[in-house]
């Protein structure tokens, strides 16, 4: 019974509170190797005899990536491990080096679309999940000292920011905030739009 090596290069890719465990494939000529993943939170280490919990979606998977977002759902240090399986043969566990805490996730600026609807300044933000709040800054171009702010705990389709002066240009930028880890992303690039010109006057 040939020994199966443990998976190597085990690491986590974490962006915007979505966490994926990845590893290098174990190659056995002419055979399909499967993998199983388990996790262990600080609670399991400190209070449950160092027990490990299997992730059923990644049990006997042929993929070399596992979405662990649902299970890394507290702001504590987690450990993760993977093993290879071929028929009845199982490899030793390959354990990710060190710990993973979701506080280290990388936060990208939000995607937003700014529109001028007549005199109305509108913004549309891409939904990023329940953990995300948005801080939107907007100002009349040339009046950078008078920036206004709107904080949105939930994303609705289109948000009215302000009523603009005729013909004036307004600028908007935004960042995300994740309360669970008390961190914010950097700001998105600034987008500016111009309000419609004043059409009320009579021109003779």
């Amino acid at each position: 019974d040939a020994l199966l090596p443990a998976p190597q290069s085990i690491s986590i890719l974490s962006t915007n509170m979505k966490h994926f465990l990845t590893w290098s494939p174990v190659i056995v000529q002419g055979a399909t190797v499967r993998y199983s993943v388990e996790f262990q939170g600080e609670y399991e280490r400190e209070y449950a005899n160092g027990s490990w919990i299997p992730i059923s979606e990644c049990s006997l998977t042929t993929a070399t990536v596992c979405n662990v977002t649902e299970d890394i759902s507290a702001t504590v240090a987690y450990r993760l491990r993977v093993r290879a399986e071929l028929g009845a043969t199982r490899s030793p566990w390959g354990t990710m080096k060190g710990f993973f805490n979701r506080v280290t996730t990388s936060l990208t600026p939000p995607l937003l679309r700014v529109l001028a609807d007549g005199y109305h300044l509108l913004v549309e933000l891409a939904d990023m999940g329940p953990a995300f709040q948005f801080r939107v800054l907007y100002w009349k171009k040339g009046h950078e000292s008078r920036v206004q702010q709107k904080v949105m705990k939930e994303v609705s389709s289109m948000v009215h920011l302000d009523t603009m002066e005729a013909g004036a240009e307004y600028c908007v930028k935004a960042q995300t905030h994740v309360e669970a880890i008390n961190r914010s992303s950097s700001f998105s690039p600034t987008q500016c739009v111009r309000a419609q010109r004043d059409t009320s006057g009579w021109w003779l």
């Binding site: 996790f39 939170g41 600080e42 609670y43 399991e44 400190e46 209070y47 449950a48 919990i53 992730i55 649902e70 299970d71 759902s73 507290a74 702001t75 504590v76 987690y78």
Partner: peptide, 14 residues
């Protein structure tokens, strides 16, 4: 169920 209990337990710890 065990996974959800782990999630709650680790959140309580934090």
């Amino acid at each position: 169920v065990n996974r959800k209990i782990s999630s709650i337990a680790n959140s309580f710890l934090s």
